[in-house]
């Protein structure tokens, strides 16, 4: 991968009155990277994206997009980026095609190129058969595709997607991510925010955000590997709630939670952990079907990182 940073953020702060939405964050994104922002609602993800798109002026710090300072050259920055906002924000009264034509005009796609670009995005998004459908009649997934189509019409080098898949069914989400990979494969940088843990794992690199700060930043694999040498155990038992109470009470176990039909917990050592669990549960007369090791999920990483960081702050 090319090591050329296309987004550089240094000490970025965005305050709304007293409220600090983004609190001194610094990061950089490389060309062709799929860079994710994972965090709960209100963590500052959207605010950061909106600063990077020149929709909000930073209170402090610097943000370079495509080598240009957003605060100084917002108009030049905007020509080189595509932005898809959290809320669907195309024109419902217009047809698919009319929306695309409008954005082609707005982004000054040259006339000679316009039909080709239009055809290209329609094809790529699978919207050919829907080109004359009024936008308000499209289902959620198709609306997302149209929004993405309008955002990439002018072949931007950087694409900002603010929770692009919220409210879209899982199948459509998967398809949407295929499109994101395609864009990244063409050397475009994709900057995406999400609060779906599974989706976060599709990113090349991931920044975990909490209360305006980046609590952790790395590739999903490395973030998960960050737990080493700790491991995770899955305990299958018919009496979930009693087992949960019993294991949570033990000081040696952290992060015990119900996961599917069983319990998940973090242990320092696999063999020792399994022994203690069996002992504790049999003392309570709780039957255990099976205990096995499982891989940590992004959710495990996120919860543990956020707890750690807020613990440090306290």
């Amino acid at each position: 991968m090319n090591r050329e940073p296309v987004v550089q953020v240094e000490g970025l702060v965005k305050q709304f009155g007293e409220f600090v939405a983004v609190d001194h964050i610094s990061f950089h994104v490389e060309k062709g990277e799929i860079f994710g922002f994972l965090g709960s609602n209100g963590a500052g993800k959207s605010t950061t994206i909106r600063v990077l798109c020149g929709l909000l002026a930073p209170t402090e710090g610097r943000a370079l997009v495509g080598g240009l300072d957003v605060a100084l050259y917002p108009e030049r920055v905007r020509q080189g980026i595509g932005y898809m906002s959290q809320k669907f924000s195309l024109y419902n009264e217009l047809s698919v095609q009319e929306n695309i034509d409008f954005f082609a005009g707005i982004y000054s796609v040259p006339r000679s190129n316009r039909e080709r670009r239009k055809q290209d995005v329609l094809e790529r998004m699978g919207l050919i058969s829907k080109r004359d459908v009024p936008t308000h009649l499209l289902a959620g997934g198709w609306k997302q595709r149209l929004a993405l189509a309008c955002a990439i019409l002018h072949e931007p080098g950087i694409i900002f997607l603010d929770e692009p898949t919220s409210g879209v069914d899982p199948l459509a989400r998967r398809d949407f991510w295929d499109l994101i990979y395609e864009l990244s494969g063409e050397g475009r940088t994709v900057f995406v925010t999400t609060h779906y843990m599974d989706e976060a794992e599709y990113c090349h690199r991931l920044a975990l955000m909490d209360e305006g700060r980046i609590v952790s930043l790395d590739s999903p694999e490395r973030l998960k590997a960050g737990f080493a040498p700790d491991r995770f155990l899955q305990v299958d038992t018919p009496r979930l709630l009693s087992a949960l109470d019993c294991l949570e009470a033990h000081p040696g176990f952290s992060e015990v939670s119900i996961f599917g039909s069983g319990l998940r917990l973090r242990v320092g050592d696999l063999v020792e952990g399994e022994r203690v669990v069996r002992e504790l549960l049999s003392n309570q007369g709780i039957e255990v079907h099976q205990i096995r090791e499982v891989q940590p999920t992004m959710e495990d990483v996120f919860i543990s990182q956020v707890e750690q960081s807020s613990g440090v702050r306290r």
């Binding site: 929709l55 108009e75 932005y83 707005i106 982004y107």
Partner: peptide, 14 residues
């Protein structure tokens, strides 16, 4: 109200 202004503002439109 429709949120389309946000989209417009992210474009080079003046």
């Amino acid at each position: 109200e429709m949120g389309t202004m946000e989209q417009l503002l992210s474009t080079p439109v003046r």
